[in-house]
Design a binder for these strands. Structure first.
Lengths: 302, 302
DNA sequence: ATTGCTTTTGCTCAGATATAGCAAAAGCAA
DNA sequence: TTGCTTTTGCTATATCTGAGCAAAAGCAAT
């Protein structure tokens, strides 16, 4: 049997909030995700990932979940060469920066932040992808639909967890420099955002999408929060992760109703306005029921 | 660098409805999942899985999605030996059975079917796991909670998509024969259900859980249905997958409201009662919006 | 002290959804 | 025609959700 022996590599998307910005742990000048090969002595893929990240960054990891596995082909022979198993990890930032550094994930994919601001979508991306859609008369209708769904055009809602689909579309259109289709466009038209080594930006998009989806049905945000926090800080964190704003009062109602948090009794007066109560995550809830996440109150109006 | 070369194996949980029973494709006398190594010439993991399943069973696959990747350890040296990438696939059964055969998944894990019937849970499982919980005074409270959540005891609702957690609990308690803890119990106390090769039953549980979860937020059931079907057949299918019954009228309202299906105009008179309209899945919806799945109407009372 | 600004917190209201049950419609079989 | 089955339509009630108003509680400057 022509069974193929390949090397296996672990790849980690490690997320933390730094200065109220969602960041990802990267290494090197051209950013790359922490990674390392599977080696003898590793008892599991998860343990191996932990070991590599901790060795490369001097940081302890909390939450860690498997993302996706894909195969790297040998370019010349189109033969499997190595297997990459990617993981998503959540932590709180520590004082020492270790070897690696935190990089704001909206510097790496600015189009994922739709909070009031750049106008990047309207000004740059929408025209480009729509032009691409029309450029092939046969598939135009289908392509238009795809653009509308992934980027929330034509009355479609913006869906935060379609991050991967959006990256794939930009890649296909050639709007990111790492795409083979990028030569078709003048460099000035490319979408801003720092590129990464290999297909790491794609893996990052996968992690982003997974995190945004997961947050909605499992209480994982708290892995990113300090021990004590105000509801506003929690909201800011979720808004930063989702890249969109939510209705404050409804958000509070949702969180309190679910009994995800409890008051510590202390207050935080450094808010600039009325002092806010401090809360902590009720860890017991993980054992008391199969707790849901923090659904973001949506807006009706488009 | 002591980089480890391992072999990679693909493993597939292929599901179809056969005679209104959810079944999984297995091979061999002691059931095992279709599998095969990653080989030169395979362009992707997904393609490799397709190839293997089609070769081993002579069956074309429709939907296919990656489940999970884990590493098999060399028992003696605790060194990684091979990587298994598991997939979940959905099809409709064809007339020819190929080499493999369909096996009802509730024969493999009877406890996952809670529709009126066996009383397996109350009579056999609940007492055993509660006894296990109490057997360690220190962890008793915690264990009791875990049992209650995973198996829906003490007022907790039964959650269909905790199939993996339930299997893991049974494994830990030693109620399944493949568990190393099974020696502690007399064989008559073991939970019924055919065992599988290696840890395939665990992989099956993973697939089951994923399918049950996925059905709720993406319209994948239709991959298991015939071209045309009555709403009752659709409901039967979902009930069989979820292993629990739902309120018929509300189910119909949910499905129609979402515009997931459209009438074909034809009727099916073979129902035994009033003839039912035939429907088909509106495939367009996949392109028109990011369509949701068929949420199962819940019941308030426990 | 008062005014203005900010943020937190409490509350309400209308529209939408969900659960549950009643009952008629439409077939077959005895 | 009667009894049985399944499909289908409809309604009452409870709950949830989106949206907005406004008071409470701090700080800073006047």
């Amino acid at each position: 049997m022509d069974r193929q022996a390949v090397s296996a590599e672990l790849l980690a998307v490690i997320v933390a909030m730094v200065d109220d910005q969602p960041c990802v742990l990267t290494l090197g000048a051209v950013p790359r995700l922490p990674a390392g090969p599977l080696m003898p002595g590793h008892r599991s893929l998860q343990a191996a990932t932990r070991a590599w990240v901790e060795e490369q960054t001097g940081r302890r990891l909390g939450y860690l979940e498997q993302l996706y596995t894909f195969v790297d082909l040998d370019v010349a022979q189109a033969t499997p060469r190595s297997l990459s198993v990617s993981y998503l990890g959540l932590t709180t930032p520590t004082a020492d920066t270790g070897i690696g550094g935190w990089r704001a994930w909206y510097d790496l994919m600015p189009w994922e932040d739709t909070r009031p601001g750049t106008g990047l979508l309207e000004a740059r991306i929408t025209p480009s992808i729509l032009a691409w859609a029309e450029s092939d008369p046969v598939q135009a209708a289908e392509r238009r639909q795809r653009c509308a769904i992934t980027f929330g055009l034509a009355g479609q809602p913006w869906q935060t967890d379609l991050a991967l689909q959006r990256y794939e579309l930009l890649y296909e259109v050639g709007l990111v420099p790492e795409s083979p289709a990028a030569w078709r466009l003048p460099e000035a038209q490319l979408v801003p955002g720092e590129r990464m080594v290999g297909d790491h930006r794609r893996v990052l998009a996968t992690g982003l999408a997974r995190l945004r989806a997961k947050i909605q049905y499992r209480p994982v945000v708290f892995e990113l929060m300090a021990q004590e926090f105000t509801l506003r800080q929690l909201q800011d964190c979720l808004e930063a992760l989702a890249g969109k704003a939510v209705h404050t009062q409804n958000f509070r109602r949702l969180v309190e109703q679910q009994a995800l948090v409890e008051e510590t009794g202390a207050m935080d007066a450094s808010t600039g306005g009325r002092p806010a109560r401090l809360y902590r995550f009720r860890r017991e809830i993980l054992q008391q029921r199969h707790a849901a996440g923090t659904k973001l109150p949506t807006t009706r109006g488009r």
